[in-house]
């Protein structure tokens, strides 16, 4: 799975993204976020407030918990501020 981070998430985690193997312990976006929260202090901070982290799976916004699979592109980012 390709994981992408944007804006201040990227700054705080000090990476644009990473590749993670699919794992049975994180079959959906909710469990992936929980797993992220337990990875270390920077991740815990970034993922502490679920309301400010938007998620897109394969470049589409998701609403609610969404199953994920190998080959998916999962992006985490704050509310958008373009225009």
């Amino acid at each position: 799975m390709k994981i992408l981070y944007f804006a201040w998430l990227k700054t705080k985690l000090q990476m644009n993204g990473e590749t993670l193997p699919w794992a049975a312990e994180r079959p959906d976006t909710d469990s992936l976020v929980t797993w992220m929260q337990e990875r270390g202090p920077a991740f815990a901070e970034v993922f502490s407030d679920r309301d400010v982290v938007r998620i897109a799976v394969n470049q589409e916004y998701i609403i609610g918990n969404t199953p994920i699979s190998e080959g998916d592109e999962i992006a985490f980012f704050p509310p958008v501020t373009g225009g």
Binding site: F6, A7, Y61, A75, P79, V80, T81, G82, G83
Partner: peptide, 11 residues
Amino acid sequence: WLKTKAPFWKS
């Protein structure tokens, strides 16, 4: 809609 949906971020 662009301001609330298009994935752009300003710093």
